[in-house]
Design a protein around this nucleic acid. Structure first.
Lengths: 218, 218
DNA sequence: CCGCATCCTCATGGATACTG
DNA sequence: CAGTATCCATGAGGATGCGG
């Protein structure tokens, strides 16, 4: 039954009444990547108790943030964000951008999954402006990504299937694919900074050598 | 001591490890208005237990989100956001924008304080673009605000002192002050919509009659 | 198997009293 | 005024069960 309401006529308090419960925003993060089954969510959110996940899903559905859908291809029910729930992408990305110092501190013993890179890199690279450069401290391992650069920004799509959960290995190694060809970028994201406008980012990649197995952009 | 870490190498999870605890983001919201004393926070966050508030303040200070300062004028220690903590304005405003349907649902029995209007109106009016019109559902009572309109957006400052907490009355009645003169706007924000660009907003106010006690813009 | 529901234990939140 | 100490209620976490 979730947590009690703050009882405040305030947008933030009302928002937290809906998505402020533990695990709730992480469920949203998973669904921002795409619809997912119950078991996939359970696997992705390492450490969540099944009763908690079930309760949160029920609450989020009742609030209109998520909805159950029928996946015809997989012949199962999946959870997906509603249109309103999709609107959480903006504040979630804001929190991710704010947290860069925490992420740059290193991985430690934390778990790390490929799907998280999707939302994270969209948040970090997708909104960059010259006025607000960003220091990226994300590690990556055995992940293939496709990054597209244009005037409007940077879009990131995965070169691997985020479902079921892709658990990444320890050593940071990112494979980035550009329209001009894929490039191996070891530890670029891990230790370096992606600052300034997309042009700069492209220039950084241009100095690196292409990998053996290039990823072509869609 | 707060909640356990999610143990995930993910920006959102790390962010929630810091500000995901109950009351934490509401403390941040209060400090986004300005530095505040312990008692002021306790009064503003109606319903928070003193031990919880003390624990959250300790944790947020340890995380580097807030800091204690000496208020020379008032001869007391106040809590204030650090520079990094100020960065939470962006995701907090995002959550407030996302929550407009929840706020538009009406006030109900929830408490309502003037200081909350500062952050809320900045979030709702400050970032509006023609591409993303916003429906505002905030009620207000006996609050005097100063709203400035220009090409870059809308800035909102209070015409009353947010500290100590200003508890607003039930009947919605907003006093908005423009550079061209202050205007009484009963229930405009409560029931109406502030959509489109700032010009439209100004046009809405132009049709209303000035109040007895105008608030001049800074 | 998958998708939950139940049960149990214990950490955490909430209300009140109390203290420097 | 600014917290700390205490006690109780509640939610989180883990294991397990159970129907489809």
């Amino acid at each position: 039954m979730g947590r009690r309401s703050y009882g405040q006529f305030c947008g933030l308090a009302r928002a937290l009444d809906v998505v402020g419960d533990r695990w709730s925003l992480l469920v949203v993060r998973e669904l921002l990547v795409g619809p997912a089954r119950y078991g996939e969510l359970r696997e992705a959110l390492t450490g969540v108790a099944t009763n908690l996940l079930a309760e949160r899903l029920r609450a989020l559905e009742a609030s209109g943030v998520i909805e159950r859908r029928l996946d015809r291809r997989r012949r199962c029910t999946v959870y997906a964000l509603t249109e309103w729930g999709e609107g959480l992408r903006d504040p979630v990305e804001g929190l991710i951008r704010w947290s860069t110092p925490l992420v740059a501190a290193g991985r430690g013993d934390d778990t790390f999954q490929g799907a998280w890179l999707v939302v994270a890199l969209q948040a970090l690279a997708g909104r960059r402006t010259a006025a607000r450069p960003l220091a990226v401290g994300v590690e990556a391992a055995d992940a293939q990504l496709t990054v597209r650069l244009d005037e409007t920004g940077v879009s990131v799509t995965l070169g691997f299937d985020p479902r079921p959960a892709t658990v990444l290995k320890a050593e940071p190694q990112v494979v980035l694919g550009l329209a001009s060809g894929a490039l191996t970028v070891p530890e670029v994201i891990a230790s370096g900074t992606l600052e300034g406008d997309p042009r700069k980012l492209e220039a950084v990649f241009a100095n690196l050598t292409p990998p053996a197995d290039p990823v072509t952009a869609g």
